[in-house]
Nucleic acid binder design. Structure first.
Lengths: 268, 268
DNA sequence: ACCTGAACACCGTTCAAGT
DNA sequence: ACCTGAACACCGTTCAAGT
């Protein structure tokens, strides 16, 4: 999906049989005969995700990833055309977890609101599972200008639009809903994930953060100081639910006002 | 503000006299005597911003920035402790443009909604002026966990909270409003800016995008294909206004329901 | 078929040295 | 006081060579 690379086994199309079921799989596994030490595009991407989760994005180099896999960096180029495309593969791999998430696909016909709820929670689960990877999901250039970052895959866009249109949204309002939904997801999850990075991990730049906190003169910001405990409460989960509910309510209004105006307008 | 560097002239505190007025200035200029070729922390940061705007973030290296300034890379270390802190300085410098924006500060007392409107538009102006820099604004770890990315400065957080509390918000709802507002800004502007990057610039990875577009089999996504023209319409500006209006309405409800409950609750 | 060694051009950063 | 040259450790990536 990422490029015209001539590497072997680049069956990245999302409809290959293995892609559908497995929670982690973007690519088919190595042929059965090839022994456990055999490298694999899937294994490479999996290792990259692990690496980023553990050490942070900046720490990921071809050489270090190679040595985690017991191999020289140059060996990776058999499975991935370069570092940029490795990152694209990581992003693709991570959102592909959604395809395998039963909580998202289960019971497709409880209405569009239920569907958008499950989709949002599915994306949120991924973001929280890979907080270091998620900014990449948000940041890598998408396949087409209208495939917006948090969903990131034509399959999801298609499914989103179909579901809304089937539920009575006009094409225009389905597209508008898609935009509102994407930016809601992106904003919330990016903030939640970055907050998590700051408050929990002594990993990346604890130095920078601690320094800044120590250096800044707080006496000029009495309100901030007074509200510090309120400000540092982590209410992300509740805020997510509330903002999502609110968005769905907004969409419901749009639906009621704009219900597929093209025909049947006089019929019922 | 960023670290314990012993470089000369590191008066990064936001209250130095020069910092208040000038639209671009984080730091005082060089002493009057030092000639036009004299380097300067401000000049270094300014050149870095220009560079990123023109060539993209990935292209910025110490060596290239040096040569743009007619100097070896090593000379930059006089003004900036390292590349990371250079990027922090860039972010700080860019949001400092807000302090000099008359449209944001003008007429402080037309009510909180007017204030939030002007602030949001100010941030949006910055994001659009520096589309390559803005993801950095969203991504760099903030000074404190509760200083959320798009606002990024204690001064703005303080001003935000004060304005809302003065307008009758309870402390709790002022903080909740701050969170909702930040994530709204982040989501919208990040999407808008990344869309701009994709659709306009033949700059960064036009290769990757064009490839993906060409490689993907669109026949599986009939709805997406059918709605392509709707999907690729750029309605960012209108969507921004609408979502902002909606947010302000939500906040108004919060205000009415929760009007400073601590005292005077029985008085009127 | 799959991996490695050596090499190339380019990084960030340090430090002693120049003016 | 300010800048540079040389050096170090580390990048991504290529390509011929090994097995």
């Amino acid at each position: 999906m990422t490029g015209p690379d001539q590497t072997p086994d680049d069956g990245t199309d999302p409809d290959s049989p293995e892609g559908r079921g497995g929670a982690a799989g973007v690519l088919p596994a190595a042929r059965p005969g090839s022994g456990r030490s055999g490298l694999d595009r899937r294994r490479v991407l999996g290792a990259a995700i692990e690496f980023i989760d553990e050490e942070g994005l900046d720490a990921l180099t071809m050489r270090r990833l190679g040595s985690r896999l017991g191999v020289e960096a140059m060996a990776l180029y058999r499975y991935v055309p370069g570092r940029e495309q490795l990152l694209d593969g990581v992003v693709e791999s991570v959102i592909d977890e959604l395809y395998g998430d039963p909580d998202v696909h289960l019971a497709a016909s409880h209405g569009w609101q239920d569907y958008l709820q499950r989709l949002a929670h599915g994306v949120r689960r991924i973001a929280l599972a890979h907080p270091e990877v998620f900014p990449l999901v948000a940041t890598r250039p998408p396949a087409a200008p209208w495939v917006r970052p948090p969903l990131r895959s034509l399959r999801w866009v298609e499914s989103f639009l179909d579901t809304l249109i089937d539920s009575g949204f006009s094409e225009e309002s389905a597209v508008a809903a898609y935009r509102a939904y994407s930016s809601f997801l992106l904003g919330h999850l990016l903030l939640e994930v970055s907050q998590k990075g700051v408050s929990i991990s002594p990993r990346d730049q604890p130095e920078g953060v601690r320094q800044a906190a120590a250096t800044t003169d707080l006496s000029e910001y009495p309100t901030v100081v007074r509200l510090e405990s309120l400000l540092s409460l982590d209410e992300s989960a509740a805020e997510f639910e509330e903002a999502l509910e609110n968005l769905l309510e907004r969409l419901e209004v749009v639906l009621r006002e704009g219900r597929t105006p093209q025909r049947g307008d006089a019929g019922s």
